[in-house]
Amino acid sequence: MSAVPFSKISTPLNALFATIGLLVVAALTTQGLTGQERLVSELLLAAIWLAYVLQLSGTLLSRRSLSGGMTALVIDLLAVLVPAGAFLFVGSRDRDLYCTIWLLKPLRDSTFFRLLAKVVANESRNLLGVTSVFGIVLFGAALAGYIIERDVQPDKFGSIPQAMWWAVVTLSTTGYGDEIPQSLAGRVLAGLVMMSGIGIFALWAGILATGFYEEVRRQDFVRNWQLVAAVPLFQKLGSAALIEIVRALRPRIVPAGSVICRKGEVGDQMFFIVEGRVTVATPDHPVELGAGNFFGEMALISGDPRSATVSAATEVSLLSLYAVDFQMLSSSSPEIAETIRKTALERRGGASGLP
């Protein structure tokens, strides 16, 4: 059996294996399992571990580049070596617990960590500033709580480290209730600390949310720029015009055999082909268009119904331009609209043309 295909175990399958393994580990911690049930559970863990060994072998044999596959390789190594080391060097009671390292398996191919790292790096100054405020408020609350409550509750507020636990619980607005100020001043202090905690955590959440939004928008812009730049129609446009086009166009993937637009429909958008081929069912004979071509422009410009049905001959990557965006582009960048109109007329030649 070749090990290489195991390197391509899908993320859902990795999640399924990990879920089964973790449920088995949880079951093994319950009381009253018979010897046979424990044996079956151990064998199931061994089977999952063997699948991960084959996946690791496939990853190594596929010779992935370190830059592209280092995270996956590290996770694969940990998933194999940690349980194996526990089996060799840890007592039988706790060695199954080390299989919980498989929690990382569903994340081996995830792009989330790379995105999170970029967001944290971009927003590091703001995050550090809010963290500093959190530390100042935390220590200040513990100090104030110690001064106010040390004589009333010396067992809970007898030192700043003891008061620090109350400050953490209160500042995070968790409120376990194990340490509660008794004096009026202490309760006023607790209310102020709670409100400060709400504000600080809201700042953290706002910074991260804004960072994620900006990074996703930046990545989308770069991807759309690359798609737009691949269309010959736009290659002669300046950078300012390209930016307008990138903001207006919407990427879309259409599977093979799907109908993109039908004859007689009201056309509110035109399409640019980035990759793949489409078939246009014209009255005379079908026409096939490939990357770099566009269709649907006359329905967008004139508002007439579609004159033909267009379907995807292969999986096709499209960029769509809606009529509203086309009108806005016509006002802000007349050269773009003129280029589309001119090219459309040249391609149609006054004949049947495209929908």
Rank of each mutant, 00 (worst) to 15 (best):
S124C: 01
I9F: 06
S92M: 01
S320N: 12
F221S: 12
T30E: 15
S2P: 14
D155I: 07
F326E: 15
A121T: 09
L28H: 07
F295K: 01
L329G: 03
R218H: 08
E42D: 15
E149K: 05
I75M: 09
A190N: 03
L319V: 07
I245N: 01
F139S: 01
K236C: 08
C99L: 08
V310G: 04
K8C: 13
T210W: 07
W225P: 00
A299W: 07
S317C: 02
W225V: 02
A312S: 00
A313F: 11
Q219R: 13
A142T: 05
S57C: 15
F221M: 12
S307W: 12
L60G: 03
F234V: 00
P154Y: 06
L321A: 11
R247G: 15
L116S: 08
S307F: 11
E338I: 11
F87D: 13
F201T: 01
P255H: 00
N122V: 07
R341E: 15
A344R: 11
E335M: 09
S67F: 06
L13C: 13
T279H: 02
E288M: 00
Y176T: 10
T71M: 12
Q55H: 14
L97F: 14
F87W: 13
G175L: 10
A185H: 05
A26M: 05
S352T: 14
G264N: 11
S110R: 00
A240C: 08
A27F: 12
L23C: 14
G135E: 02
A205L: 10
G191E: 06
S196V: 03
E214I: 05
L242P: 01
L345I: 13
V280Q: 10
T30R: 13
S330F: 11
G290P: 03
M298W: 04
A351G: 14
T173C: 12
D96Q: 15
F295P: 02
G264V: 06
S317K: 10
S65N: 15
V231N: 04
A3P: 04
E335Q: 10
L81W: 03
F221H: 09
S7W: 11
Q269D: 08
F139R: 05
I273H: 01
I136L: 14
A3Q: 04
A51E: 02
T339G: 12
S10E: 13
L184I: 09
A185R: 00
L227Q: 08
T111N: 09
D96H: 15
I207R: 01
F6C: 14
A26V: 06
R341S: 13
R306F: 10
G276D: 04
F295W: 05
A248C: 07
P181L: 01
A144F: 05
V130T: 02
L321G: 07
S239N: 12
L44K: 00
F134V: 06
C261S: 08
L43D: 13
D94S: 08
L60Q: 04
R150Y: 03
V74D: 10
I101D: 12
G68C: 02
T339Y: 04
G199K: 03
G211H: 00
K118M: 11
V24F: 05
G175F: 07
I180P: 04
T279C: 12
M70H: 02
L78M: 15
V74L: 06
W102P: 08
D94K: 08
G177V: 01
R64Y: 07
S302D: 14
Q31H: 12
L77D: 02
L22C: 14
T339Q: 09
T343D: 14
G135H: 02
V278S: 04
G353K: 03
